[in-house]
Every structure is written in C-alpha cells, then in structure tokens.
C-alpha cells in the first residue's frame, strides 16, 4: 500500500466538507429566515405526540442481527481470501465453502425457527 493512494482521499474529504459548509452558508444567506424554527412539534399528521418519541424501539428483527453478525465476521475472512485462492488452490476453496456451508446451516435453522418473519 502506498500512502500517496490515500492523499487524494484525504483531499476529497476536505473538499466535500468545505463544499457542505459552503452550501450551509449559501442556505443561510439565501433563506428568508436565518434563525431556525425551534421547538416544532414532531409531525404525525397534525396532532402532537403524548410522549417523547425517543424510546427504546421494539426491534423485532433482533434475531436477524445475530445471524447477520455471524456472516459479517465471515466476510472479514472472505475479502483477503479472494486474493489468495489461485495461490493456495483447492484447499482454500474447500475450507471457505465448508465454513460458508456451516453458516448456511445456521441460516436454515434460523429460518425454521421463524427468525426471518416477524409480522
């Protein structure tokens, strides 16, 4: 890896940030009212809520997050693996797809348990 590869990325980040700041400045200059409208009741059709909507959200797809996490970890191995398949040969392919097969079995189990249906 070459540090010069990252130079443009960093420069781009600075550039976009500057662009966004500029956009906000233009917005402030052009908008008919510089002060923001404050303490607006949140919208749900006209009538305000009875409590603060900030709440511990009922995440019914929680089991899916667990399955996802398992696969997400797997992806960490799969990225570097793509680079060495040719060198390492058959064993690399066998190992990776055995691993994936095991994970897929887990998906099958989760499916049977109804983890992917929540309504």
């Amino acid at each position: 890896m070459d540090t010069s590869d990252w130079q443009p990325v960093l420069l781009l980040l600075v550039l976009i940030s500057a662009g966004l700041v500029l956009l906000y400045v233009i917005g402030a200059a052009l908008s008919v009212e510089r002060e923001p409208l404050c303490d607006v009741p949140p919208f749900s059709g006209g009538l305000g809520p009875e409590e603060h909507p900030f709440s511990r959200f009922h995440v019914r797809w929680y089991p899916v997050t667990m399955v996802f996490l398992a696969f997400d970890m797997e992806m960490l191995f799969m990225y570097p693996w793509t680079k060495v398949v040719g060198e390492v040969g058959t064993s690399a392919v066998v190992e990776m797809f055995l691993f994936l097969g095991i994970l897929l079995a887990g998906v099958g189990y989760a499916w049977r348990e109804g983890a992917f249906r929540w309504s």
Binding site: I26, L30, S31, V32, P36, D39, P41
Partner: peptide, 10 residues
Amino acid sequence: LVQQRRRTNA
C-alpha cells in the same frame, strides 16, 4: 434553499 431551517421539540 430559501427555506428556513427547523428543529423539532427536544
């Protein structure tokens, strides 16, 4: 662009 910005309650 010409619109005022807004902030909801809390």
